[in-house]
């Protein structure tokens, strides 16, 4: 084997191996595949970008190649689809620009009937726009307004309750409040009861000597009657006072 033959063999074999590898890689990457262009339209170009993927059932089948405005002000979006994915694009396919909260925007192709006719290249299909974030804002906004209102109401209520609590405190614990009055009343009752003790002692004295004490008994009885009546009134007044906040004061006869 001559030197020329060896060198030639080396160069040819290695070059062929490298070229085959590159060709295989290129063909697998779709470099040599026929690519078809379809045109979509939208009222707004907002959200569309060159290179944006076109997705069918979660798989990328193409991408946006060009964006332009037509004379009517509509945005024309050109998408390139390789030959092998042409079967997913039909005349009745719908195209949706989907902008998720997390992740890149993409054009989602939905084809309900895969047996329908393929989409003609000259047809300009409309693109619907679905924005996760805008829809979410629409739903959440009224809720937020409601919550704001509720919060404001709660604030007002809590202020009122504070005022009421202050008043109640004043009414219960203040100088002219209920509790000090009750204290006064109870003191009066105690005084009366002490008087009653005295009266009961007198009764005992009188009971020992009944013959002489009839007048005294009558007097005594009227004393008792007066005392009991007074106590009745006090108790009634006390009842009224505790149950009625508006008339905390009364005078003990």
């Amino acid at each position: 084997m001559s030197r020329e033959f060896k060198v030639g063999l080396f160069i040819v074999c290695t070059t062929i191996a490298v070229l085959l590898a590159l060709l295989y890689l290129s063909s697998e990457k779709g470099f040599f595949a026929n690519v078809y262009t379809f045109t979509l339209s939208s009222k707004s170009g907002d959200g569309f970008t060159d290179g944006m993927p076109v997705v069918f059932s979660g798989f990328k089948i193409g991408q946006v190649s060009e964006l332009e405005l037509n004379e009517k002000g509509l945005v024309l979006i050109k998408i390139k689809i390789p030959q092998r994915h042409m079967k997913w694009i039909k005349a009745d396919s719908t195209f949706i620009l989907y902008r998720p909260l997390i992740g890149a925007a993409r054009i989602v192709v939905t084809t309900n009937n895969l047996d329908s006719a393929p989409m003609p290249p000259r047809k300009i299909a409309d693109v619907e726009i679905v924005n996760d974030i805008n829809d979410l804002i629409k739903i959440v906004q009224p809720l937020i307004e409601k919550i704001t209102q509720i919060a404001e109401n709660l604030e007002r209520i809590s202020k009122k309750v504070d005022k009421m609590a202050d008043k109640t405190d004043e009414q219960l614990y203040g100088k002219e409040g209920t509790l000090p009055q009750v204290n006064k009343i109870l003191k009066n009752i105690i005084n009366k009861l002490e008087k009653l003790d005295t009266t009961v002692d007198n009764i005992n004295k009188i009971s020992k000597d009944t013959s002489e004490g009839t007048k005294d008994f009558r007097m005594l009885r009227s004393d008792i009657d007066d005392a009991v009546n007074a106590m009745d009134k006090v108790v009634i007044k006390l009842d009224e006072l505790i149950s009625s906040k508006k008339n905390p004061e009364f005078e003990v006869p």
């Binding site: 160069i11 290695t14 191996a17 490298v18 590898a21």
Partner: peptide, 8 residues
């Protein structure tokens, strides 16, 4: 060529 061969 040698580098390509090495890679292969």
């Amino acid at each position: 060529l040698l580098s390509s061969l090495f890679s292969i």
